[in-house]
């Protein structure tokens, strides 16, 4: 088991290197720093001097991969790749366009993101699993049919609609909670209720349908028939036998996103004015702040890979066939 986790961790290294190389290629090879400078400066102010100055301020005036002028190891380290990409491995993300340290900014914004995402995640999982279990329990009845119809309709509605509609109705018409913003400490709950509720509702449709399919697949299995042949009530069959087994495929999709909860929800945070990583990313994209986007790509990949490893671990907890091998 331990060897397995160590192996997975080792396997993560080449993946991260791949991610790093890919982002490097995307940000520095597809377009040269000169292109970016021209774009950032705007057409009117483009002069060779302005471009040079722009590049120098951001450290983009070095060679990409190999600095033939630098002495010794500097040939490798005194390059854009080393400065901007390789150093991300040690948590050095450089500075944003506004001159702030990105790493510091990220640290400060993780908590607000988590404050929205964690309750959203837990509540959403709880609601959808219960709903899906109920649908599977009443399978092939009118309740199941209309439940599925409701799910399909709900998943056909744009997530933007849930947000805009929620804000309009709850905050503007009913004036129950503030429309957007974020507070310090416990006061934050007033700002969190709406984004969490909207997040849960917008996720119900697709997740419920997926889980219902998983449950129905398990319902047809032989061990369920055995459980019924024992004379167990249907509720026991579902909660004790079916749920435990169905949890294994459900875990695949669920555990992997847990680390990524830190990344925040892009749209939600932006709409509700929550100062998390999601809105940070969006602002960076809108302002074309390449350094921030690059950093978020890397962090996102790291969190995803951690999620993959967690998935493996959670499998082995849920499934004795893996745990005991």
């Amino acid at each position: 088991m331990l060897a397995y986790i160590v192996r997975r961790l080792l396997y993560a290294i080449p993946i991260l290197i791949g991610v790093n190389l890919l982002t490097f290629a995307l940000f520095f090879v597809v377009n040269t720093p000169d292109d970016m400078a021209r774009m950032q400066l705007g057409v009117k102010r483009v002069t060779p001097e302005a471009i040079q100055k722009w590049k120098a301020e951001r450290g983009y005036d070095k060679p990409l991969l190999w600095n033939s002028q630098a002495p010794g190891a500097g040939a490798l380290t005194d390059t854009i790749f080393f400065d901007k990409s390789a150093r991300m491995f040690v948590g050095d993300f450089g500075r944003a366009e506004d001159g702030r340290d990105i790493a510091l900014e990220i640290k400060g914004r993780m908590l607000p993101s988590l404050a929205v995402q964690l309750p959203n995640f837990i509540l959403g999982l709880f609601v959808t699993i219960i709903f899906a279990l109920t649908l599977a329990f009443f399978r092939a009845t009118a309740f199941d049919f209309w439940g599925v119809v409701l799910c399909v309709v709900m998943m056909s509605i744009s997530s933007l609609f849930y947000i805009i509609g929620g804000q309009y109705l709850v905050s503007k018409v009913w004036r129950l909670v503030p429309i957007s913003g974020f507070g310090e400490g416990l006061d934050a709950w007033r700002f969190l209720v709406l984004p969490v509720v909207v997040g849960v509702i917008s996720g119900i449709g697709s997740s419920t349908r997926l889980y219902r399919t998983i449950f129905l697949e398990e319902v047809g299995k032989d061990y369920i028939r055995t459980a019924r042949a024992k004379g167990l009530p249907e509720t026991v069959v579902f909660l004790r036998h079916l749920l435990r087994n169905a949890l294994i495929p459900i875990l695949t999709g669920v555990v992997v996103v847990i680390p990524s909860l830190f990344m925040g929800a892009l749209i939600t945070e932006s709409f509700f004015g929550i100062p998390g990583l999601g809105s940070y990313t969006i602002d960076a994209i809108k302002a074309q702040d390449f350094a921030v986007v690059r950093s978020m790509v890397f962090i996102g990949a790291v969190l995803y890979i951690i999620g993959l490893i967690l998935t493996d671990i959670s499998y082995s907890i849920a499934d004795p066939r893996i745990r005991l091998k």
Binding site: I15, T23, F27, N31, M36, M39, Q288, V293, A301, Y304
Partner: peptide, 22 residues
Amino acid sequence: TVLSSIPGVLLIAAAVLMMQVV
């Protein structure tokens, strides 16, 4: 695995930004 480990929106954002520059 490399491609899917980058969150989709971010990869799209990065690529679209670069495309805009082009």
